[in-house]
């Protein structure tokens, strides 16, 4: 019997199993259990949620392995963790810890301001952020098995997530409708690998799952991203920075599954308490914009 690990199908397939689900940021075992209990399809183990990373300033790095291990021991759903962009060794460490997915993430301070990790060289699959199809296709070219639109992490403001999801999907539609001879020039404009665009054109869709991230703060936000074509939702600060995390988590999970059932979203949105306090985009200095890292 021939057995192969770490194949493209196995890496991308793992993300397919997450579709329609919510992946929640957690910083300890207790939060991980709340997330699992609420119906999260995976958790992202990290040292601080993005809004606290903003507040703390300084260099944000991979989480202490102890935190990741505690989360792994606390839940049976998949555990993801973040490595700095281009930090090959943080990624290898997370792989050695057998995390289920690595997020090469702009939420952490980039370790390499030019290159991303060669993700094809790993057995563990990677998810990467994107703001447009150029970034998406470059990350797929490097071996990302899952994408998420970047949004603006830790702001509780959905506007950037919406912008990025709309742009990626409109560019996918453009590629699908393009004549073959137009594709090379579009690849040049986007800075995208031509072969990846060709695959998108033939399949009529991105070759990997694309979740929404960066700014989801309410059940209606999560449903909005599904409406705009997200395959699922990452929620960072939105849950554990709200007044009632367990209830918020449950409501966001259900609003993601039943995103077009508006009567249900009415019920899910009632009496949730205060969501995380948001940040207006105009109040962010250019250096504070995480989305501009690693493009």
């Amino acid at each position: 019997m021939v057995v192969q690990k770490g194949t493209e199908r196995v890496k991308r397939g793992m993300a397919e199993m997450q579709k329609g689900g919510v992946i929640m940021d957690v910083v300890n075992a207790e939060q991980a259990k709340i997330a699992e209990e609420a119906g999260a399809t995976a958790v992202m183990a990290l040292e601080r949620v993005p809004s606290d990373i903003r507040k703390a300033g300084g260099v944000a790095r991979m989480a202490d392995p102890t935190i990741v291990e505690q989360v792994q021991n606390a839940v049976s759903i998949p555990v993801m963790a973040k490595a700095r962009i281009g930090h090959i060794v943080e990624a290898r460490v997370l792989e050695a810890m057998k995390v289920d997915y690595i997020d090469e993430s702009e939420v952490l301070t980039p370790a390499d301001d030019v290159f991303h990790i060669d993700k094809k060289a790993f057995t563990v699959p990677f998810v990467c952020g994107c703001r447009d199809l150029g970034e998406a296709a470059r990350r797929i070219g490097e071996g990302a098995a899952m994408l998420r639109t970047k949004g603006e992490p830790g702001t509780g403001n959905i506007v950037e997530a919406v912008r990025h999801m709309r742009l990626v999907n409109s560019q996918v539609r453009k590629v699908v409708a393009m004549a073959p001879d137009e594709l090379m020039v579009f690849a040049k404009e986007l800075g995208a690998p031509y072969e990846i665009l060709l695959q998108i054109r033939e399949a009529g869709r991105l070759p990997v799952v694309n979740f929404a991230a960066g700014g989801v703060a309410t059940p209606a936000d999560a449903a909005l991203m599904m409406e705009l074509g997200a395959d699922g939702v990452f929620v960072g600060s939105g849950i554990f920075k709200s007044e009632n995390p367990a209830k918020f988590a449950r409501s966001i999970v259900e609003a993601t599954t039943y995103y077009q059932d508006y009567e249900r979203i009415v019920e899910l949105s009632k009496g949730l308490g205060t969501p995380m306090k948001g940040i207006d985009m105009s109040k962010l200095e250019p250096a504070e914009r995480m989305q501009d890292r690693g493009i």
């Binding site: 019997m1 690990k5 194949t7 199908r9 995390v99 289920d100 997915y101």
Partner: peptide, 15 residues
């Protein structure tokens, strides 16, 4: 559940 291990142990096999 998860009897073959975590994601790094996920695999394809001829059956």
């Amino acid at each position: 559940r998860n009897a073959f291990g975590r994601q790094v142990d996920s695999f394809e096999a001829d059956l």
